[in-house]
Design a protein around this nucleic acid. Sequence first.
DNA 1: CTTTAGCAGTCAAAACAAAAGAGTGCTAAA
DNA 2: TTTAGCACTCTTTTGTTTTGACTGCTAAAG
Lengths: 334, 334
Amino acid sequence: MLDERKKKILQAIIDEYINTADPVSSGIIEKKYRLGCSSATIRNEMVELERSGYLDKPHTSSGRVPSAKGYRFYVDELIKEDDISLQEIKYIQSKLETKINEIEELTKIATSTLSEVTHYTSVSIGPRTSLQNIEEVKFVLLGTRMLMAVILTDTGIVKETIIKFDEDITEEQVNTLNFIFNNKLKGKPLDEIDKPLEEYIFSEMNYSLKVIKPIIQQLDRVINEESKMYLEGANRAFELPEFKSLEVAKNFISIIDTKEIMMDLLNTGFAKDINVYIGDESKNEKLKDFSIITFKHRYQDKDLGTIGIIGPKRMDYSKVISVMKYISKKLNEK
Amino acid sequence: MLDERKKKILQAIIDEYINTADPVSSGIIEKKYRLGCSSATIRNEMVELERSGYLDKPHTSSGRVPSAKGYRFYVDELIKEDDISLQEIKYIQSKLETKINEIEELTKIATSTLSEVTHYTSVSIGPRTSLQNIEEVKFVLLGTRMLMAVILTDTGIVKETIIKFDEDITEEQVNTLNFIFNNKLKGKPLDEIDKPLEEYIFSEMNYSLKVIKPIIQQLDRVINEESKMYLEGANRAFELPEFKSLEVAKNFISIIDTKEIMMDLLNTGFAKDINVYIGDESKNEKLKDFSIITFKHRYQDKDLGTIGIIGPKRMDYSKVISVMKYISKKLNEK
DNA sequence: CTTTAGCAGTCAAAACAAAAGAGTGCTAAA
DNA sequence: TTTAGCACTCTTTTGTTTTGACTGCTAAAG
């Protein structure tokens, strides 16, 4: 589709733009990237690249800026593999090798490391609860009227919640609860804890509704509550030149402050290992100036959550993708 | 110190400035606040108020702006009590009356309600762990090599953590652990779980170090980890006119993104029920354009955390303080 | 002695004008 | 097919003028 020289020129323009955030002129490309042709030739190629939609021009007499299509081509075809330094590799290793017991904690560390190495804002969420199966349920009595329910899932995720009662709970009742829940739920998907189960336990087991109802209610709440979002390095974004525009800054804050938008972004489309959403590709108007890159935190093919980067469309895609690939690999080895 | 008329004029100026964010002129005060004297008289008074440090002037021919001293006087002496509408009261009631089991959850709801009603950014953290006493410790076996430790404190806060082992743990061992920890720690302050306890259990109880060491380590970590910060409504701030300045916006993001700064703010000085820090009063340069108002989430005199507002110096102190007082009262009744 | 009308003086902000400069597209020659 | 050269375009910068909101002061009035 694009001949070699056009690709080289497009790559040079995008690389340059990623670095400087200024529209790129033919002169700069000639001088800085030495592609063996004059600025006039580059200008001619630029006209064609613009005609085929890879480049935009802010106004008649300005340099070129990559279009969404340009970025897309860049990400799909021109990206530099392994754009990661030895130093960065060592830093990531040191961060990830600390002994961590909880998966949530590990995801957090990976997320903050990602932000530190790439200098963009990073974000993560836990795995979708509906995809997990129950491995074990345990009830623990705290005091006399408080019960903690602990659910262990097959991904190793532990969910716990507290249920308060108006009357005392006996150790015996706790034992019965442990028995019923484990018998009934072991191996079943998490979201099977709901109304039907409540009715089953009430009718079949003849167990007091007064006790069982708040338990099911609370478990249901915990299971269905959206998982916690972890955000790191939001302030880094404000160092970027695009944040001189109040509108851009406002949109950014609005995006990261609206959990629903972030959740949506982190929960969609995992056809590839690493997913890149470039600005305009999203329907959300507020996202038009930003790109999002996400990957799944996986261990032995189990989904342990999603980690992502949100940055300007003019993001250093090569670096971010390389770093993500490395972190992803390391997490999977854990 | 200030005569009645000066107070009235100062109040009018600050009220007006809080509303409009524009330097206040003598003419506006004469027309809008009808204090029974002409703009010339107000001008004369303004000169004196400026001389005594309550007002500032951006430049020679502009209106007046409150100084830090002015705001301080306003907060200490001129605030409107009960600046809260019936509608707002009802809204807060409806938000707080939902049955909630966990204190952390309640603090969160109070925090988001505070932000919704005041339209400023709100933030909260849990109570300082070192102040709490242990009520009960329970160990729960999850699978065969994973232990969950649950600590119930006298404030009703529950802390839990997971410890992983390289070898299987028996039910019997769990029982022993429960026995030892409860015997040794009931009623003691949280931070007594540390090295000496490890040694005691090892030497006196002759219990395997291989098991006990990771437990103490992990418990120690959980107890000493800074409590989680909850932030709500950061995007609201960006509607304020002061955020047109990039520097202000940057400082704001930097503040709320740096947990240490926020922690510091939420953890200091609780001489009064409600604490007001006005911009320049803090040593932190980044805080110079902002004010912070905090209060303790208390129930039966027990400290359950701190809730605060961060907004522009030109904050609606009356409203924020009134709303806080109401929420604080409601929480204490819970 | 206090208040107020009136007015000159100040300064930021807005509006306008001119110049500079970066970069393009096109033409014509290599 | 490539490139030098140049006219043209449009933003950015810089400078100038105008406008208008306020003040502080003065002097008269209460």
